[in-house]
Write a protein that binds this DNA or RNA. Structure first.
Lengths: 201, 201
DNA sequence: GGTGCCATGTAACGCGTTACATGATTAT
DNA sequence: ATAATCATGTAACGCGTTACATGGCACC
């Protein structure tokens, strides 16, 4: 549902045509998730059918600008107001994969975790490099730098979760020697700082 | 792509029929993302068409069990081996929303951030409550507790990112008095512990 | 005269969701 | 009896992707 709403948000600034919308969308989000141009047109068609936008007459260069309607502005308002909930999100493929891996008898789950850990670590390093090369967000760069930060925060959390998984798996499926009573450094790690204890401001 | 692979992973344990697959899938993942039963059957049909599973003859009670094929096992193997990359993931609606909100002139972005912050905080508290009521993962509960932990880690990261956004937005769009030279507690916070500096094990 | 970018689309397909329909068995 | 659960499906639709097709225009 990001694309229809995203296009509405861009059209709320000024009327635009399809090709332009893709460019603006990718500029706004840092081209992290490239937007297929074909989908822009099909989405615009659906938005027009639903009364969220109206297409203007094609100009002398054959471009057709769309403008947002009052209905579209209302849709946009509620989109910005209503928070994103768990139910809105798609299934996390990695979480499902690891859960099912943990239930697969013949499988080396720890290898799965480690493979993912290397990949996530590399992604985080790449994201950190990008962050380093694009510092001090000015007003126009703010949007995509926030997206970049989001990816970094999520990759970092994923890493910590993978380490947590490694520990939990080792605890339940003893790796080599079962009860050596070795000092497990991850045994009490969990979420170190629990923000739940903060007040809801 | 989680569902086809997930069903394959379950069928790799033993042959099952559709209704059973849904129950097992939800048991494995903690029913976090409820699985529609209709989709199980359509997915099984596609998997059979692609040679990943074969349907057995319906038994005396009218149930049709499916079993995984060699092709399916190979698909499963690469699924577990190949890590999940950024390109595999869908667009993060929240990141896109906030990016576009930051570019919307008339909009109160901070209100958007705060609305989301309250919602995410409540979700994290709910998840923490669930975690508290389901302690010490045994072997069979391990999978879904890991999923639950994943959600907690991600919600916590989302909270931290939202706080980061709040600070970054305040820095670029000065809230009330522009350069009061107040001590900004978030100015240097960023990612406190950068796991990038750890070694790739 | 190609190569590449601008600009607009269509077709085919998979994934995912909601809703609907149909029967059998089981429990109250 | 009837309500819930088991069990299997179909229909319609939206989102998303890849691939393909069509033209104009600029640059070399």
């Amino acid at each position: 549902m990001s694309i229809p709403h995203g296009l509405l948000a861009l059209l709320d600034q000024r009327p635009m045509y399809g090709y332009q919308l893709r460019a603006e969308f990718e500029r706004a989000t840092g081209a992290t998730w490239p937007l297929n141009i074909g989908q822009v047109y099909t989405t615009l068609t659906r938005l027009e059918r639903d009364g969220q936008v109206v297409g203007q007459a094609t100009d002398e260069e054959g471009r057709q600008r769309y403008e947002i309607t009052a209905v579209g502005r209302e849709t946009l308002r509620t989109w910005f107001t209503d928070p994103v909930t768990l139910g809105d999100r798609p299934r996390d493929e990695l979480a499902i994969k690891l859960a099912l891996a943990a239930l697969s008898p013949g499988l080396d789950v720890q290898a799965v975790v480690q493979n993912q850990r290397v990949a996530t670590m590399q992604r985080l390093q790449e994201l950190t490099r990008l962050k380093r090369d694009a510092p001090t967000p000015s007003a126009e760069d703010l949007a995509w730098t926030l997206v970049l930060d989001n990816l970094r925060y999520m990759a970092e959390a994923e890493l910590r979760w993978l380490d947590h998984c490694e520990g939990a798996l080792a605890r339940v499926r003893p790796p080599t020697a079962p009860p050596t009573s070795d000092p497990d450094p991850d045994a009490a790690s969990d979420l170190a700082t629990d923000p739940t204890q903060e007040s809801l401001r």
